[in-house]
């Protein structure tokens, strides 16, 4: 610029940082953190602990329905959640039914993840028996969840009539053995990045039960993105959800619980380095590696959120400086 600029104060410069510069700073910080990623500690919260407890206390011969409603657009959060869930199910030998109620692409995304995890688990433990159409079955997508979920409630089995997985009628596969009504399921887990959880909450109702002394008022559990988290916490608090994993932090919480187990008091935990949450039943850890996508991204999340906090502080300092120059009145 050739015209002589009026002298600008530091505060004014601070206030006039163009958006593009901010974008660039954020991008650089995240790129660097992605390369520098390292494990960080984490303190699990009750919703994730309930989620883990319910899954671990459920008898292994019960079947879990996994409704996976995310596509690659929320891979960052949801994929890590489904990976951790699959690891628990596979290692415990629990059978599950996989389907989606939102996007036609969701079943494919979920299937890819599940098959990759099973392959990884088999590489570590060659004697592992876990096969498609025997231990788990992929059903596909249900369009118009509003009405489908209603059908789940009135007649769960009927909703799956005519569905095939690799040319096999899904109703004939082992996961569907003895599953007639929605209450025959052990648990119903919704991995979601959209409002499908609201629909399920509004349509499904479970009979309360008890797994190994742990009361389960509703068999519905959810793994949601941080965005839906606060609303899902509302459902969790009203006991409409038996357990809840929220966002990346939730994934890390679950991974921590899988790696360390859970104890109800410090004394009990001193021997095995388990996570302590007062008054909780003791839950075993899962043998094997439990570090997943959650832990991989956790470091970058720290730097990014730290940067945001810094930016807000700088912005406010700038405003305060400007105000004091103008005599503090506007």
């Amino acid at each position: 610029m050739s015209t002589p600029m009026p002298k600008t104060s530091f505060a004014e410069k601070l206030m006039a940082v163009p958006s593009r510069a901010l974008y660039l700073v954020l991008a650089i910080v995240i790129i660097i953190s992605v390369f520098l990623s390292r494990p960080l500690p984490n303190q699990p919260n009750p919703p994730a602990a309930d989620f883990y407890t319910a899954l671990m206390k459920m008898p292994a011969d019960k079947v879990v329905a996994v409704q996976s409603d995310f596509t690659n657009s929320t891979r960052g959060e949801s994929a890590g959640q489904l990976e951790a869930l699959t690891r628990i199910l596979v290692r415990r030998g629990i059978r599950f039914i996989l389907y989606a109620g939102a996007d036609p692409q969701a079943p494919t995304v979920a299937t890819n993840i599940v098959e990759r995890i099973i392959k990884e688990e088999k590489a570590v433990n060659p004697s592992l028996q876990y096969e498609r159409n025997v231990h788990w079955v992929r059903v596909g997508n249900f369009t118009n969840l509003d009405n489908t979920a209603r059908l789940f409630q009135t007649n769960f089995r009927e909703a799956f009539r005519g569905r095939e997985d690799n040319g096999v009628d899904v109703l004939g596969t082992p996961p569907f053995e003895g599953i007639n009504t929605i209450n025959d399921l052990g648990l119903y887990v919704n991995v979601t990045a959209s409002s499908t959880l609201d629909v399920l909450i509004g349509r499904l109702q479970f009979t309360p039960t008890t797994y190994d002394g742990v009361p389960i008022r509703s068999k519905l559990m959810a793994m949601v993105t941080g965005v839906i988290g606060p609303e899902a916490v509302n459902y969790y608090k009203a006991q409409q959800l038996a357990g809840l994993v929220v966002g990346l932090n939730g994934t890390v919480e679950l991974e921590t619980l899988m790696g360390r187990g859970l104890e109800g008091s410090k004394e009990a935990a001193s021997a095995n380095n388990a996570v302590v949450i007062d008054g909780r039943p003791s839950v075993a850890k899962l043998e094997g590696n439990s570090v997943g996508r959650g832990s991989q991204y956790y470091f970058a999340l720290h730097t990014a959120m730290g940067l945001l906090i810094l930016a807000v502080i700088v912005g406010n300092v700038g405003t305060a400086l400007q105000k004091s120059k103008r005599g503090g009145k506007r």
Binding site: L26, A27, I30, I31, S33, V34, F35, S73, T74, R75, G76, E77, T225, G226, V227, G229, P230, V246, G247, L248, N249, Q296, Y297, A300, L301, A304, M305, L308
Partner: peptide
């Protein structure tokens, strides 16, 4: 809570590219 998701998704894309 939402900020967590948004940043995670960006981290995921950066992870994908880099």
């Amino acid at each position: 809570s939402t900020v967590m998701t948004r940043f995670t998704l960006l981290i995921d894309r950066m992870y994908f590219v880099f």
